[in-house]
Amino acid sequence: MNLCWTTLPQNLKLTRHGCDRGVGMNGAGIFGAIFARDVRLAWSQGGTGTMALSFFLIAVTLFPFGVGPEPQTLARIAAGVIWVVALLACLLSLDRLYQADYEDGSLDDLALSPLGLTGVAAAKILAHWVATILPLVALSPVLGMLMNLDGDAYGMLLLSLLIGTPALSLIGSVGAALTVSVRRGGVLMSLLVLPLYVPTLIFGVGAIDAAAGMTDALPHLAFLGAVTLVALVIGPVASAAALRLSLE
């Protein structure tokens, strides 16, 4: 078996040189491997999947105790409460996104992957979103019922959460990467990241209220999607830069 690398192109898709049986180097395979491992870990013992879901459930059910069970009151604040609690659940579960790897030394291995840290960060963010946030979104209609959400708004609740929550994972990942070497960095991370969540929260809730109030929700969704796209550009790159700091 002969390893005949001469010069490898430095982009994501590193093709095999005409080796007879050289070890393959495909970026998609690496991305998939990181994604699968993180999704697996998120739902294994000690993972963040169950924790975020149970927090989401419990925290939303607290509100009726606080503001009283009158259906009109609950209905008016339903969208806002569900979005804020989903946002906090996302923040809580992001704390260990990189810290677990930093502590057991596997962050060094992640940094040495030919995929590059930006690709690694993107894979881990996607895994976090799929494993930890999608279950929340799937559960949100149930909480909509608990909060007596207006009947026409359920579709928009799901749609706005689907379009908006990726930005929470993407920007939250930067906060997690910046505080990876900080003991109990979770508190600091929320201070860094929550101000950046404001646009997603405003447009997310705005879309649901528009749907409930029979007005046009499209502009809200459009801006929500735009914010997520910006986060998509910033998130992995800034996270990779922050992680490189902690490797030094």
């Binding site: 180097m25 395979g29 690496i30 491997a33």
Partner: peptide
């Protein structure tokens, strides 16, 4: 398996 696929994709 995780380590090798991290480095080679396979």
């Amino acid at each position: 398996l995780a380590y090798v696929s991290l480095m080679t994709g396979e």
